[in-house]
Write a protein that binds this DNA or RNA. Structure first.
Lengths: 115, 115
DNA sequence: GCCGATGCCTAGTCTATCTATGCTTAAAAC
DNA sequence: GTTTTAAGCATAGATAGACTAGGCATCGGC
């Protein structure tokens, strides 16, 4: 995983995963890894600080739960979080468009936005 | 422009622009801006340090020239630079695939790689 | 009993973008 | 004729976030 490229996309990916239903840190790393075909390895040193940032911004809320003797901190999106995810997806599309525009010689019409 | 998203893509964009023929700092910012439909505003504080990094890595080479009483430092790709650009494009495609995989529910087949 | 997988957390390092600033010359505005 | 704007290069310092490396605890397999 290229850490510089990933910069800024981490929160979007996390919000996206959480948007599918309550989940917890460790599971988020696994989901991101499997859904990116193993390309993204979300490290704990990136994940947990990011989760705390998101919670501080009220984009997610958390609750502790105990399953099989292991404590998990489940996260789910707030309404603001859902909006923020939509905004970040839009930003991602604009960003990808920009890259395509430069790489593809200015032809930024040939794009597949993520809806 | 989202500075965090842009992180890591700057050098690829710069190499791409330079790959079309010798160019100089100021022109690179203009080209990137116009080809991304104004989305990317490559600031001088990012551009010049990046150019110097690329030169130090021998990916570009430079030469001063005077045009209309203005001095310009022209950059062009080295052979290593051309290879590096190809690598960075491949990385970009993998990265974009990874994002699509997570956003699109694991369906990372529906992608348009930049060749 | 030990080790790997599961599970959470944080201090410190590193890197790269940006802000702000400092220079110069040419053209345009006033 | 002077000031502003565009063209042109450069760097110091601030900032932010991913990662390394560590700590701690439980559970299951060998």
């Amino acid at each position: 995983m290229d850490s510089r490229l990933l910069s800024g996309a981490v929160e979007m990916l996390m919000l996206e995963v959480i948007s599918h239903g309550p989940t917890y840190g460790y599971e988020i790393t696994q989901t991101v890894e499997s859904r990116s075909q193993g390309y993204f390895e979300l490290k704990e040193g990136s994940l947990y600080p990011a989760l705390h940032r998101l919670e501080e911004q009220k984009l997610v809320k958390s609750s502790w739960q105990e399953v099989d003797g292991r404590r998990r901190k489940y996260y789910e999106l707030t309404t603001a979080g859902r909006k923020a995810l939509a905004v970040k997806k839009t930003e991602w599309n604009a960003f990808a468009s920009g890259i395509q525009g430069v790489l593809g010689g200015g032809d930024s019409a040939s794009l597949m936005p993520v809806i």
